[in-house]
Amino acid sequence: MSNLSQLDYMQQIGLHQKIRELTPGFTVSLVAAAAASFLSEHYGAPVMLFALLLGMGLNFLAVEGKCKAGIEFTAKTVMRVGIALLGMRITLGQITALGWQPVALVIILIIVTISVSIFVAKWIGFQKLFGMLTGGATAICGASAALAISVALPNHPNKEKATLFTVIGVSALSTLAMIVYPMIAHWLALSPKEAGIFLGATIHDVAQVVGAGYSMSAETGNTATVVKLMRVAMLLPVIVCAATITRMQGVSSDGKRPPLLPWFAVGFLILACVNSSGWVPVMVQGGINELSRWCLIISISALGMKTQLKELATVGIKPILLMIGESVFLVLLVLTIMHWLF
């Protein structure tokens, strides 16, 4: 056997061993994600929230044993794949169709909300990065943004607990917003287009935006969805900012300097550009979006397995008030900007 053949043979053995090592943890994360999806469909609560809670109930699997390596892999690598695939939800045509005002609205609300969140987090005694995490989740796209920003931020002993808390908080607030915000739109007598802009700019998660928008009218739902996708598109520059902060803090735990633009952010950008070309069949686009959704659900169930519920109970009232305050601030900010731009 030649040296090249021996090398290929050894690599194949190593790959098979790696797959066997990761399979148990990935499988249990997949089962938890499937259960979460079933519960979400039947009870109407956010699937991310169910995935987190089910994962926390299985946290003993991540401590030791055969599942540990697979859970670690799922919580990190599978999450990054899901984030990259989010790019398939966006096209430049969707963004330009509504004109410059919604684009300006989204850019302003992202910058202002995250900036204020960082300032308030520091003021009440937390790290600025926690404010960036919660502010980004509130301003961009809820749980997906929290996961993406967390991946790009520097490692910290409380990073996973902060991420889980943010996902739980933003999921709960998004569900509440889906019910309350259409009432606010009715009360303010907003037109269908204005209501769509308001809902798309303020509700955290995509699913809740769709539910709230189409509960009012088809025009409101279409407008809300496009505005929401504009917010999702802003995930890329925010990830770059988070990666820049991480890079400025030096090398990572493995001794390597983090890249300025993480590979999952590059994937996000490439898929957004490909999707904007109009060459992607609807069936393929839908399949990739569904794959992205499942990657995020599976990875967040694994993330839940890595954290005990009692650890989240120690966060206190301040982070809860911070996230509620961010949501209220976002509503007031959007209404104020809409008053001046529309």
Rank of each mutant, 00 (worst) to 15 (best):
L4A: 15
L4I: 13
Q6R: 15
L15Q: 11
L15V: 01
L15Y: 04
K18Q: 15
L22T: 01
S29H: 06
L30R: 10
L39K: 05
E41D: 15
H42E: 14
L49G: 02
L49H: 09
L53S: 06
G57V: 05
G65Q: 12
I71F: 05
M79L: 14
G87E: 03
P102D: 00
I108G: 00
V112M: 01
V116F: 09
V120K: 03
F130M: 07
M132S: 13
G135A: 10
A143W: 02
A143L: 11
I149M: 07
P154W: 02
H156S: 14
E160W: 03
T163W: 03
L164C: 14
L164H: 04
L188V: 12
A189F: 06
K193E: 12
K193F: 12
E194A: 14
A195M: 04
L199E: 00
L199F: 01
Q208S: 09
V209T: 05
V210S: 03
T220I: 06
A233K: 06
L261V: 15
S277E: 09
G278E: 09
C295T: 03
A302T: 10
G304F: 12
K310C: 10
P319Y: 06
L321R: 08
L322F: 01
M323F: 08
S327G: 11
V334H: 06
F342D: 00
